[in-house]
């Protein structure tokens, strides 16, 4: 018996989400009285997983897996889960993990719970806490299948260090041609930009900014903080910003450490998507804007005055604190 965790890497380096998933897997393994085995695909520093409680790493090195492919990756994990007699398979909730998890669930005839935010309340029955209704509520779900697939939300359980000696073994699953029937033709990803999914801080602008020409100050603030930029739905609908920046109930979910909303009113559909963020700051000239009820910190004022000043002050702060 074991708990398996898939630790996603990009360009050979593990993602923070992978370390969070490993931390969570260790928590489950302690509850079940077993140990954690990780599966890494084309990663470099496999032993680093030991820091988060992984005691064995199945290291897969295969050029065919250089690009993510949901069927193929799910096949690798299926074979690993069977070899290791895994009772639970832990994944993060990155775009790739969300893509492969349901495929893996069918392969293993396993129940899958997504968006999990805490360790199981009990393991008999196996009941996990997850978000539902797009962060408007929590839902406690029990999983009755023998194998359980668990998708862990970003920034909810967090990183837990647990120094362990990780034993790295080569693992060569057999791959089938049918694993590659969906073909990745090209990947278009800006490498120099922080993404909303990975960012610790997100700076987001709404219709209060009046037009796309005013986004320079949003980008300046984001650059100063090393943050990703985002926007409300009407802003992307009007084409001021790309769709990929649209956050909210029908856009991307945000679970950042800090979310800064500028010129955004705080409609229920917007808040639902960003509520999982730990701290929220609102800058809005209307003190009645609903966002003030959802935020931790607020500034009532004109964004065109407040934001440039805030950026200047932050630059000073960064210069003095680095």
């Amino acid at each position: 018996m074991s708990v398996l965790v898939y630790t996603e890497s990009e360009n050979g380096k593990f993602k923070k989400a992978a370390f969070e998933a490993a931390s969570y897997a260790k928590g489950i393994a302690d509850q079940l009285g077993t140990s954690v085995t990780a599966v890494s695909i084309n990663a470099e520093d496999d032993a680093s997983l030991g820091q988060y409680g992984v005691s064995k790493v199945l290291k897969v090195s295969n050029d065919k897996l250089a690009k993510f492919n949901a069927d193929a990756y799910a096949d690798v994990l299926t074979q690993a889960a069977k070899n290791e007699d895994a009772k639970a398979v832990v994944l993060s909730q990155t775009a790739n993990d969300k893509y492969l998890a349901p495929v893996l669930a069918v392969n293993l005839e396993a129940g899958y719970a997504s968006n999990i935010v805490a360790l199981p309340e009990s393991t008999e029955p196996f009941t996990v806490k997850r978000t539902a209704f797009t962060n408007k509520a929590f839902n406690f779900s029990s999983i009755s299948s023998e194998v359980k697939i668990l998708g862990i939300s970003k920034n909810a359980y967090g990183l837990k260090e647990n120094e362990t000696d990780a034993n790295v073994e080569d693992f060569s699953p057999s791959l089938d041609e049918s694993d590659f029937s969906v073909n990745v033709e090209s990947v278009d990803k800006a490498t120099n930009k922080v993404t909303i999914a990975d960012a610790e801080i997100v700076v987001s602008g709404g219709r209060g900014l009046k037009g796309p020409e005013n986004w320079g100050m949003i980008e300046d603030l984001a650059d100063t903080l090393g943050a990703a930029t985002a926007c409300s739905k009407p802003v992307s609908d009007m084409g001021w910003r790309p769709h990929s920046e649209h956050v909210g109930q029908t856009g991307k979910p945000v679970a950042a450490n800090l979310y800064i909303a500028i010129g955004i009113s705080g409609a229920i559909q917007h808040l639902a998507g960003i509520n999982a963020s730990k701290y929220k700051v609102v800058i809005n000239n209307d003190p009645e804007a609903p966002f003030f009820k959802a935020a931790d910190y607020g500034v009532v004022g004109d964004a065109f005055e407040v934001v440039p000043q805030l950026t200047e002050k932050l630059k000073e702060f960064k210069a003095n604190n680095s």
Binding site: N96, D188, A190, T195, S244
Partner: peptide
């Protein structure tokens, strides 16, 4: 398909 921080073109 939308990926974290970009897009990917697939054929099937």
């Amino acid at each position: 398909r939308e990926i974290d921080g970009g897009k990917e073109t697939l054929t099937a």
